[in-house]
Simulated assay, not measured.
Amino acid sequence: MHKMVILGAGYAGMSAATSLAARTKRRDDVQIVLVNATERFTERLRLHQTASGQNLAEFDIPALLEGTGVEFVGGWVTGIDAAARTVRIDDERVLEYDTLVYGLGGVADTTAVPGVDDNAYTLNSVHDAELLAQRLAGLGTGTVAVCGSGLTGVETAAELAERYPDLDVVLLGRHEPGSALGARAKAYVNDALARLGVQVRCGVEIVKVLPDTVELAGGESIAVDAVLWTSGVRVSPMAAAAGLAVDEHGRIVTDAALRSVSHPNVYAIGDAAAVEQGYGVMHGTCQSGMPTGVHAAVSIVRELKGKQPKPFRFGYYHTPVSLGRHDAVVQFTKPDNSPRRLRLTGRRAVWYKETVSAAPWPTFGRILEFPTSGAVWPQGGRYTR
């Protein structure tokens, strides 16, 4: 019996689990175990909506996997023994593996600036987003600081400003919102934020977060009633602690087939992996994470058949950005994620973005039914295998 353990049921982990189940359903010599802290699938693409107080659909992981042969194990992973090939869960269970798929994704980096851990909200989970929603619902008026001017910060600031027009929403960051988009798309983002009343402060450095204050370099302080931290990403130190080769950010360094360069029986997927492509190291998104999960599954099945896995190749396709419920911009991109001339704005972009955001969960079902279906993902991105 070949034992395969998948850690994490995010976009990448679920893609790996469903693809492995579909590709091995006629085999009786494999065992697949999926480990996740909760039974609910987290729609990270929509956590900014949860933070604004919107009720979203709930997706049950064990229900989707029913009848597939995948064993779901609920619990937090507390350690990996790469030499013994075991994984330890928080209730002291120990899972043995022959092949490990490591998909424990990233979270907001709350360690780099003093006070963030204690005084800021995050969008690391549904629970964290709901805590912010509860706080905002009880404010009435006041100031909310969204720290981090990347796309998560932009989407959240727009959502909060639209949902709570009596609140002052301040977006703080080092870079101008939409800095990676084309000039016209970036201008559209900034015009939309201005229309919604979001106060944008770019080129600033946050040095400390207090319960009612955000302190900036140079001595300026901003009085706040709530702080959301979206700046920076960190991954679990578990891979490094297990002795796996990691990069300076703690991500597992992989070969061309997504195997750990130090432990070839470990595949790394999603945010947890430092995947090198011709244009550089991939950055963690849904559109890149799901193909890594499928490729890991394809490669594992090839190895079970005595074949060598093929290299992973991926190119980006688009950057969709919601600007509240009634506006959006979609920047189409080259494979290296640099902007093309083509873009969508307004209602067409809203329809496109909503279609993309709704796609991941149904995609898992389609993978189970049609494991060898097309290589262009609803979330965007092109994966060739």
Rank of each mutant, 00 (worst) to 15 (best):
N36R: 07
G142Q: 11
V154K: 07
S125N: 05
V169T: 15
K334Y: 14
F312Q: 09
A245F: 07
G306H: 05
V298C: 04
K353M: 03
Q277S: 13
A359L: 11
A145S: 04
F312W: 03
H48F: 15
A245E: 15
I89V: 13
Y267I: 09
L323K: 08
Q277E: 14
R135A: 10
D60E: 08
K310P: 07
R341F: 14
T345N: 12
Q49R: 15
P371T: 05
A185E: 10
C202G: 02
G105F: 11
V113H: 03
H48V: 08
E43M: 09
P378F: 05
G74D: 03
R325S: 06
V73N: 04
V116F: 03
G13S: 06
R85I: 01
L34G: 03
A129I: 10
I222W: 00
G324F: 07
V77E: 00
S125V: 00
E303I: 07
A297N: 12
G203V: 05
S260T: 01
E39Y: 02
V227Q: 02
G197K: 09
V170K: 05
D166S: 14
L47A: 12
V87W: 01
Y383V: 08
Y279S: 15
V198G: 00
G203I: 04
F312H: 08
L160C: 08
C147S: 09
F332K: 04
R234G: 09
R340N: 06
R343P: 00
E176I: 08
D212P: 02
L34D: 02
N337Y: 12
P362I: 04
T345M: 12
G284A: 15
V376L: 13
L34Q: 04
M290S: 11
G250M: 14
R382C: 06
G278Q: 11
E159P: 01
R163Y: 03
N124M: 08
K334T: 11
R93W: 05
N36M: 11
R313V: 13
G289W: 01
Q199D: 15
L258F: 06
A129H: 02
R174A: 15
D98L: 08
R325I: 00
A272P: 06
P371H: 09
R251P: 04
G243S: 02
D28M: 12
L216K: 05
G219C: 10
A158S: 10
R85C: 08
R341K: 15
W76F: 12
E220Q: 15
E369I: 06
D168H: 12
V330M: 02
I300R: 06
V261G: 06
I89T: 02
V101F: 00
A16Y: 05
V144G: 13
P371V: 07
G380H: 02
H48W: 11
S52C: 02
T319G: 01
P291M: 04
E39G: 13
T384G: 08
N36W: 04
I32C: 04
A17F: 03
D28T: 13
A217M: 07
A161T: 07
H326E: 15
P335F: 14
A51I: 09
V281W: 10
Y316H: 13
R251A: 07
D109H: 09
V266N: 10
A375K: 07
R201E: 14
S19Y: 01
G284K: 06
D28I: 07
L171R: 11
Y102P: 00
T372D: 14
A157E: 04
N337F: 14
Y102G: 01
K334W: 13
G380K: 01
G380N: 02
Q308N: 13
Q134P: 01
